[in-house]
């Protein structure tokens, strides 16, 4: 078995596009769920809007990339307001129902024939990433170190992506150590207590929903420019659940939890896949038992098993504090 190749792929997965996209989606969820206690199950919708905001602005309207980024942020803000206005006065589980329905509704809308002119229907859009790579200041060619050898354009995408991750992390850190963050955490613990102390709970929840949504949308932007295309079916509910997995893996309400969680999530996925493929290729696992085409599904089963074990033996995630879980049980 080619263990060197497996480990190289695994290391690459730690900093690859998917790790960036899910880190941003999970940082947004951390603001919603980790700090404010908002059960947002529609993060995929924010990510989709992030991708399509840029794609439609540049591809359909022929505007600049910068306007595309603005559209990405603006559409996430509008989506958050649309979700929040009717539901944030209600109990948290209503938000969960509304957000999951809205994100699926949004995906179906994006792939509908009626909006095909704007969105490209189920095939999506692809002619928008040129501007992003034309401003690439890095030298051309293919270079790197160790297992990390990429083309200039990939380096540019990774640089922008990880910069966004760092900026989002820094923003969340700055906010959560402030009195503003304290109000958010108090809402998570007990919103009536926050209300009884003069805090406008509805207003803070809305700010939280918008902030986390915009950060998630930036993940969509990265996904769009990295793949140079957007397709509606890439933004199904799986994005939301993977982002939650990454968040819980890293530890909720921890600054680095979502980032490390997302990296680790893709490392485990890549490692499992690599090992399975090699094992089948080398007849360690007989092809009568499992074929390479089944690896894609089986790796998720194994990852699911691993996560179940993690929840049993380290339920607080990597950065979490077990004492906090004990408090919930009281």
């Amino acid at each position: 078995m080619d263990w060197g190749g497996i480990f190289e792929n695994t290391l690459r997965a730690a900093i690859a596009k998917d790790a960036i996209v899910f880190a941003l989606a999970a940082i947004g969820l951390n603001v919603h769920f980790g700090y404010t206690g908002l059960l947002n199950f529609g993060q995929a919708g924010f990510v989709a809007l992030g991708a399509y905001g840029t794609a439609i602005t540049v591809d359909y309207y022929g505007q600049s990339l910068w306007l595309g980024v603005l559209a990405t942020i603006a559409s996430a803000v509008v989506f958050a307001l649309l979700l929040g206005v009717p539901t944030l006065r209600l109990r948290t589980d209503y938000l969960a129902i509304v957000t999951i329905a809205a994100s699926e509704g949004l995906r179906l809308l994006l792939r509908s024939v009626t909006l095909g002119d704007f969105t490209g229907g189920s095939t999506g859009l692809s002619g928008f990433a040129g501007d992003f790579y034309s401003i690439n200041p890095l030298p051309g060619g293919r270079y790197g170190f160790g297992p990390f050898r990429y083309s200039s354009d990939t380096w540019w995408m990774l640089t922008v992506g990880w910069t966004l991750v760092l900026l989002a992390t820094l923003l969340v850190w700055a906010l959560m150590r402030s009195p503003w963050g304290r109000v958010l955490k108090s809402i998570r613990e007990d919103e009536n207590a926050a209300r009884s102390l003069g805090k406008n709970v509805y207003y803070y929840k809305m700010q939280s929903l918008v902030l986390g949504g915009v950060i998630g949308a930036l993940g969509g932007f990265v996904n769009a420019v990295a793949t140079r295309s957007v397709q509606p079916d890439n933004y199904g509910t799986a994005i939301t659940f993977f982002a939650y997995t990454a968040l819980i893996l890293g530890g909720t309400a921890r600054i680095w939890g979502p980032v490390v969680g997302a990296m680790l999530f893709w490392v485990v996925i890549s490692f499992t896949e690599g090992v399975l493929r090699e094992a089948i290729g080398n007849e360690v696992i007989p092809s009568s038992f499992m074929s390479t085409t089944q690896v894609g599904q089986v790796r998720f089963m194994l990852v699911g098993l691993g996560l179940a074990l993690l929840m049993i033996f380290r339920p607080q995630g990597i950065f979490g504090d077990r004492r906090e879980l004990a408090l919930d049980a009281r």
Partner: peptide
């Protein structure tokens, strides 16, 4: 948390 009129409770001023 109990103190009212906190300047750091605004989104922008928190930064």
């Amino acid at each position: 948390l109990g103190a009212v009129g906190q300047r750091g409770e605004g989104f922008l001023s928190a930064l």
